[in-house]
Design a protein around this nucleic acid. Sequence first.
RNA 1: GCCCCGUUGGUCUAGCGGUUAUGACGCCGCCCUCUCAAGGCGGAGAUCGCCGGUUCGAAUCCGGUACGGGGUACCA
Length: 510
Amino acid sequence: MNDALKTDPLAGVTGDRPVVARFCPSPTGNPHVGMARTALFSWAFARHHGGKFVFRVEDTDQSRDSEESYNLLVDVMRWLGLDWDEGVEVGGDNGPYRQSQRMDIYADVAQRLLDGGFAYKAYDTAEELEERREKARAEGRPSGYDGLHRDLTDEQRAAYEAEGRQPVIRFRMPDRDYTFDDLVRGPITFGADNVQDFVIVRANGQPLYTLTNPTDDALMGITHVLRGEDILSSTPRQIALYEAFAQIGVGSGVTPRFGHLPYVTGAGNRKLSKRDPESNLLGYRDDGFLPEGLLNYLALLGWSLPAVDGEEKDVFDLAEMVEAFEIGRVNPNPARFDLVKCEAINGDHIRRLSVEQVTERLLPYFQKAGLIADPATDDEAAVLAAAAPLVHERISKLTEAVDMLRFLFVAEDEFTVDETDAAKQLDEKGLTTARAAHDALAGLETWDTESIEAALRAALIDGLGLKPRLAFGPVRVAVTGSRISPPLFESLELLGRERTLARLSAALSS
RNA sequence: GCCCCGUUGGUCUAGCGGUUAUGACGCCGCCCUCUCAAGGCGGAGAUCGCCGGUUCGAAUCCGGUACGGGGUACCA
């Protein structure tokens, strides 16, 4: 966290070229929140520096990747509003942007690394490797590849092939230490003894992430790599690969800067896994989170807006984040995802919306719940528009509005009253109150909020001598079905005289 | 085992050698009030993982150590 140790993020790599950052998930399973935060920080970094943002998909593992997951990824990026200048679906000069469509490129790069002596074929079997690994570990040595096949002669290779062994291709790590200046952590050094030769192409000819990721970053002109700390320890390998690329003419010859973002953890201290329901990004959309609310909360996990005049501000939108985002301010320590705070921040964002905007955002949730037709009728749209202000500041997720306003949209024969609430509020006294309310409202000439309030106050508070909370409780439960509801008089106006009186009558006769 | 990263109230976070250690979420109380929220006010809650060192002075700098996390794959 000592920024003095960290150099300018733009130093060394850009020159007069613009910043190019990227997000490159692999399409396995549901997109999760840690992924979204990585995307957000990379995106904000690119935008802050006026650079480009590339969205690439790393689908090189056929056994784990799926088309469905790919579609989800695109869908969620669009929902979040993290737009990309180059990448899947939108194209660009350095495509294609799905690694499964770039296999010929990797084969070519691997061959050139082989030809240049930067990589070699290794014929060890899995069993042999395992045995040597165990031994090294037992002796307290690092357990990576021991380099046994580093310098095989032609005869030795021929002999292995005669046995029918298929070689992997391994990258030859230069025998030296690697130090790089991490954008969020400062200088980090890996000793030569601890970074071994690694596989870049499988025995079956498929390239691995270890090759495809740096190859694409080099070819796509990526200047800044922001990613999870889980791959911090593979950074020296990638730097070595870049140095080889410079010599065989892959990419521009410049090594990007790296920044490793901390984990987002769940309960306990475990990294939030794809299987945790809390990590499912699209679940947040279904639950009624606003993309700007979720993103704001995610930004807070490891980053904060600098205080202005001693004032700290933690509710902000993407534009404000872009304006202020500095990678050097990102916290290197992991942060726990707190759903309750996420909801609170989301509520703040809902309240920032205009009534028109909330209404618009609410509509699909009512349609999904089957309360409003798709497309909405003029009448439904009008009721929703009139009701939205009643719940606007009462909800922290859009779906909460659906529950609060259900009584307005539900078909009359499907209207139900919460049993517990009815038991508490519609006892003998409550029914007396409800009857008085019914009679007062039945004779009302003008059906609007003011008249309704005046009539009920006159009948229940002045007439029956009740305290306000005792007076309105039974009416609320009978008419909205719950002890908790939007403001009562406004609700009754929207419900209309007929339905209001019918529900009060129903309560009296049950 | 070996390598790397991290450690400030329950959670997130400010802090960059001198502060009564910042703010947010949550929690408690009060105000407002037709319920629930929102809003306002106030409160509890941190000897800054631990031990040494440097310094007149350390949450801040240095060295150890403990604990947590990650890596150590023909996953990414």
